[in-house]
Amino acid sequence: MIVTSTGIVNGIIDKKYGKYGEQFFKGMPTYSLPLEIKEYPQNTRTFAILMEDKDAIPPTGFSWIHWSAANVTSDSLGENASVNTKEFVQGTNNPDKIETFQ
């Protein structure tokens, strides 16, 4: 399986998808990357997404989860799908309270 994004150029995520962006929910950036999934098994019905930042371990002591989603039925997610679609379940990275954006 190959996952790509036009929001990542030369290994660097475009600033609008992170803390320097302009769209936030409860103080957290919410403008999600566009994703394309290719070369996955033929009978795949859904995908799960976990975008983890292991670079956060040295300063924070833990890995930061940027985005988690389950029951994703499309192999293409447009820019800002984390806010613009209700077609899949999303989690948050708040360890004190489990909730979804939906």
Rank of each mutant, 00 (worst) to 15 (best):
E39T: 08
S76N: 11
T100M: 14
D53C: 11
E79N: 09
G18Y: 08
Q23M: 14
K38S: 12
Q42E: 15
K97C: 10
D75V: 02
N10E: 15
E99C: 04
F101S: 13
I13M: 10
T73K: 11
K15N: 12
D14R: 13
G21C: 06
A56D: 07
T100W: 14
H66Q: 05
W67K: 05
N80P: 05
S76K: 09
I12L: 13
D55W: 00
N84Y: 00
F24G: 00
E52G: 00
F88M: 07
I13L: 06
L77S: 01
V89G: 07
P59W: 06
D55L: 08
L77W: 01
I12C: 06
W67V: 11
L33G: 06
P34L: 02
D55H: 02
F62P: 01
G78I: 08
F24V: 10
G61T: 03
D53P: 03
Q42K: 15
D75A: 04
L33A: 07
A81K: 01
P59N: 03
P95R: 03
W64Y: 10
N93Q: 10
F47V: 07
T85E: 14
L35W: 09
M51H: 07
F24C: 05
E36N: 12
T60L: 13
M1G: 14
I8T: 04
E87T: 14
W64T: 11
I2P: 00
I8H: 08
H66G: 09
T44R: 03
M1I: 09
G78L: 05
W67S: 05
N84S: 14
T92F: 01
E79M: 02
Q23S: 08
F88K: 07
P59Y: 02
T46I: 07
Q102G: 07
K26Q: 15
I12D: 07
V3G: 02
W64M: 12
Y31K: 13
T46Q: 09
A69K: 07
M51C: 00
G21L: 06
G27T: 04
I13D: 01
P95W: 00
F101M: 14
F25H: 13
Y40M: 06
P41I: 04
E87Y: 12
V83A: 12
G91A: 05
E36Y: 00
G7C: 05
I13W: 03
L35S: 10
P41V: 03
P95N: 00
L35F: 12
N71V: 08
E36K: 10
H66V: 06
I37N: 04
F88T: 07
Q90E: 10
L33W: 01
A81F: 01
Q23K: 15
A70Y: 04
G18H: 06
K54H: 10
L50H: 09
M51E: 05
H66R: 14
T73Y: 06
E36P: 02
S76Y: 10
T85G: 05
G7N: 04
Q23H: 12
K97Q: 12
G18R: 11
F88I: 08
A81T: 12
E36H: 05
I49G: 02
M28F: 13
F25G: 08
T92E: 02
F47P: 04
Q23P: 00
N94S: 09
T4Y: 00
Y40H: 09
G78H: 02
F25M: 11
M51F: 12
F47G: 08
F62E: 03
Y40I: 04
A81Y: 01
F101P: 00
K26E: 15
S74R: 12
E22W: 06
I2L: 13
